[in-house]
């Protein structure tokens, strides 16, 4: 499972944000937690909580094209 954060969702991934620990917990549990690098730059977020990886939106497309993968937009 991959949790891909876009738009304002990346704000909670900032190091020190009150809910960032939840993302780190997910990462420790084996969920790939990814934050859209474009959204991070727009919001001047340059430090992420542990376990969260910045990535381009092309990764989201690659994941969507991966066999046996379903995308759920929330």
């Amino acid at each position: 499972m991959t949790l891909f954060l876009v738009q304002n969702a990346v704000l909670a991934a900032r190091e020190g944000a009150s809910h960032a620990g939840g993302y780190s917990d997910l990462a420790r549990a084996g969920v790939a937690v990814v934050a859209d690098a474009f959204a991070l730059r727009e919001r001047a977020v340059d430090r992420l909580a542990s376990g969260i990886e910045p990535s381009g939106i092309d990764r989201l497309v690659s994941l969507a094209l991966t066999p046996q993968t379903r995308v759920i937009w929330h």
Binding site: V6, D36, L65
Partner: peptide, 18 residues
């Protein structure tokens, strides 16, 4: 909403992969 730009960025990336 910001969703418009995100959707168009996804389509842009998709045209480079699909």
């Amino acid at each position: 909403s910001a969703t418009t730009a995100t959707a168009l960025r996804i389509i842009d990336a998709a045209l480079r992969q699909a």
